[in-house]
Design a binder for these strands. Structure first.
Lengths: 212, 212
DNA sequence: ACCTCTATGTATAAACC
DNA sequence: TGGTTTATACATAGAGG
């Protein structure tokens, strides 16, 4: 476009590169907006100029929302791919993985026959149900896993507390045994590191249960 | 461009909207690529079709890098704004978008007007979108919450370990001080309650990161 | 639904200010 | 550096297969 045909390579002249950048940036933004409006889709565009300045366009109120959506999208894909390719390790030393094979197979099949467009209403409804089921299962497993992790952590913490108390008692006994003898540095350590720590996790757990 | 001038509003005819989408998506991608190459800048473009499919272009090897860069950029801006304003509390590192009042209000409204039966297709689709958005946000928040909880637990646990070690050392010192004097019940307690405990939580965290 | 064709609207390179 | 002009390349709407 313009007087001359353009080579698809970096413009070496700094000035005209800058000029072109400015012009084309505007054009791109405009077209992005048009696509979003005309076709009623979400579009996000971000451009970092070589001097680090950011230019962005987003059809949603905040580009953050689209990024969030993107993040989730990608994460879901990664999750699917990971569980699809032979439950990659992340089980090592883990509470019973509850990983039955059913869902993966379904997802696999689903991903393979990607021609969703060609399904009819009934088939789509069926597919929707299946996917919904898988999603529920996945979410449930995730929650379960996290809960187990939290519980394990809590138990270990209780053990630690118990042991600590024991040691302290032992020490106290020792001290009173020799109390007339000499007096060491008896600076306390009596204070709990966090007095509400015991309450924290149950609260968290409960809150999370109510979240879903 | 084309036979007729185009109105800047949603194309109502579904077929031509779809066709336009396909054409313009290609054009936009091409122009994004051109901008990136010609002007030697980083460009990221993502498009969500109304059926949830994602189309993306990125000049960097991974769009993730650009997202990372974007995140940092935004965080810096927020930091700047925070120190500029009266530290409005964006909840440290949390995307501000999740903090809007929207979801609860929407759910409230939704629950109040329960006569779903009387909604038409368009309204229902809109509702579906909104609910989907809320669901995503909720899931994200839940994960975040759990991660924070785990982190807190881990930190506390480290504190406990540290304190325990301290007490034990103190005790050892005491013991050697009076060693000729008398011998108490010096049964060990030396064994770690769980030798792999230190490794456990990082593993858990990592696993969970991969889960989503 | 997808390709081709083509008339026409747009974007923009280069030139000038 | 930034706006205006102009010639030209490009993108694409609409039609037809």
């Amino acid at each position: 476009m313009g007087r001359g045909k353009v080579q698809m390579k970096r413009i070496e002249d700094k000035t005209s590169r800058q000029v072109t950048f400015s012009k084309r940036k505007g054009g791109l933004m405009k077209k992005a907006r048009e696509l979003a409006v005309l076709c009623d889709v979400e579009v996000a565009l971000m451009i970092f100029s070589d001097r680090g300045r950011l230019y962005e366009f987003s059809s949603a109120e905040s580009i953050g929302k689209i990024l969030e959506r993107y993040r989730i999208h990608v994460e879901e894909e990664i999750a699917v791919r990971q569980s699809a390719e032979k439950g990659k390790r992340y089980d090592a030393g883990f509470p019973a993985q509850l990983m039955d094979t059913g869902p993966q197979q379904m997802i696999q099949r689903y991903l393979e026959e990607q021609n969703i467009e060609e399904k009819n209403m009934i088939e789509l409804t069926q597919l929707e149900k299946e996917l919904d089921m898988i999603l529920r299962q996945t979410r449930f497993k995730k929650t379960q896993l996290m809960m187990e992790g939290l519980k394990a952590l809590q138990e270990e913490q209780q053990n630690l507390r118990r042991e600590k108390t024991q040691v302290e008692e032992e020490m106290a006994a020792m001290r009173s045994d020799q109390n007339a003898n000499d007096h060491h540095q008896s600076h306390a350590l009596e204070q709990e590191s966090n007095p509400h720590a015991n309450d924290y996790t149950p609260q968290l757990q409960e809150a999370m249960l109510h979240l879903f």
